[in-house]
Design a protein around this nucleic acid. Sequence first.
RNA 1: AGGGGCGUAGCUCAGUGGUAGAGCAGCGGCCUUUUAAGCCGUUGGUCGUGGGUUCGAUCCCCACCGCCCCUACCA
Length: 526
Amino acid sequence: MEFEPQDQLVQRQKNLQRIAELGFEPYPHKFDWKQTPAQIVAQFGEHSAETLKQSEVKVSVAGRILTIRLHGKAGFAHIQGEGQRLQIYVKLDAVGPRIFELFQLLDMGDIIGVSGHLFRTKTNELTVWVEKLTLLTKALLPLPEKWHGLADVEMRYRRRYLDLISNERVREIFLRRAQVVRHMRAFFDARNYLEVETPMMHPILGGATARPFVTRHNTFDADFYMRIAPELYLKRLVVGGLDRVYEINRNFRNEGIDAIHLPEFTMLEFYQAYSDYRDVMKLTEELFSGIAKAVCGGTKVKYGDHEIDFGRFEALSMREAIVKYWPTAAGKAPTIEELATPEGPRAVAERYNAYARSKGLEEGFDAIADLNESSAGDLTGALFEEIAEEHLTQPTFIYDFPADISPLSKRRADDPTLAERFELFIEGMELANGFSELNDPADQERRFRAQVEAGGLEMPKEIDWDYIRALAHGMPPTAGEGVGVDRLIMLLTDSHAIREVILFPTLRPQKDSETDAAPAPREEHP
RNA sequence: AGGGGCGUAGCUCAGUGGUAGAGCAGCGGCCUUUUAAGCCGUUGGUCGUGGGUUCGAUCCCCACCGCCCCUACCA
């Protein structure tokens, strides 16, 4: 083994050898624990010194040593288990010379089991009076600095195990993440949705617009795409009579990485027959406010220097949002009527571009590109993103999306240029995207053809005929939604980067020469 | 991809154009109620890599590598 710090590793190996020489099993198989540190603190944390003395509470508890304070013929240590620290007191008189020598050979990071009884020290800290001590696992490498913990951002992600040991907040984020997902499942299960799993490897790209990862299957001698969305498979299930389905799983998109994007991220996606997008919006409010109450104790949640209220959802049409957030300095604000005319979005975009260029890029304004090659719908979407999106801090539904940027959505009956589609924005982030599902196979075929013709790395290269066939068999009026689980968890844990809420976020692979481990002879695994 | 910032001991960080420092961790002592234990002593660094300027570079310049932030891309 060659790891930094090598001198400390060697020293700890010596300690381990000495422990073995004393006749202790270096890596025992089992320790008969009765409580976790967290249980002990929860149960006896309030008991007075007197009460503990009278009741003589016996405990048997295991954990990782985080601190050691030796005092000659006695010593204190803290062990940690289930995220809770518990102090132990080891005294020569109480454990005898052999175990006391073992205790002196322990290092921070070692995993031990102790049994004894509880008492309070002079400073009134709940402490285990150790009668027996067992080494359960030797830690051959030291923990990060005990006061500051692990701060190097890259190493926190690459060695998340150390991050979890030494940064309490990290542990809490992932406990809460599990609560959120558990609550989601309970929410849909209670409403009679069926949880399903659909393929992660797709022969045809579909369900979203994004550049995919491509992988190869040897036996089929064929390429597959890592899925960018489960949508088309979930709707096939609705055709098959599974009227309410949901899936919580990973999507993969081969695109940029920043504070709110990672190549693999978790999506909740659900579909319900005999519903439209209004039903799904309502359900989304229930879901989000319910989760906030369940995991944060209320609908108002602190995020950075302000508060998000999951109990109140605004709703604006996309055109209304553009009008509302039009910069006053940009001159005459567009009207909803103007944006609704066929040439309106182009005229508005030209006006906006003139303003953006006058302000200059250094002030963060950007012009909307490709005015001539874009449809009115493209431009409306671009105007919305440029002007309104960043302002949507509190939960806000944006609805009435242009149909031509919504290839899987049903058109509005009274205006076929608009789709029955919405997105939910919070903190300027897209949290969810839902719509009444397009179930007219002829229209779906036209829209698929348009996508294939448009081309580009993020577009399917061929039409998913089986999906159209499924629609031709008849999909009931259906609505569905995708929810960015990681982003929701960011909001509920006051985290401001998506990597903070993903245990092992995608990082650039390390070359051997950059790690501190000598890659030694590689073992071939059969 | 463009702009900015950072890279110094295992960890957290100072610092200087004259080849480096603290705290923690480690090692050797003392210490039977401490808790960032304390006290005494002590090991450890090609200052990210490679060039250049200079009598001399960790410091200044250039390139490269990595990370972070912003912008762009990305529904």
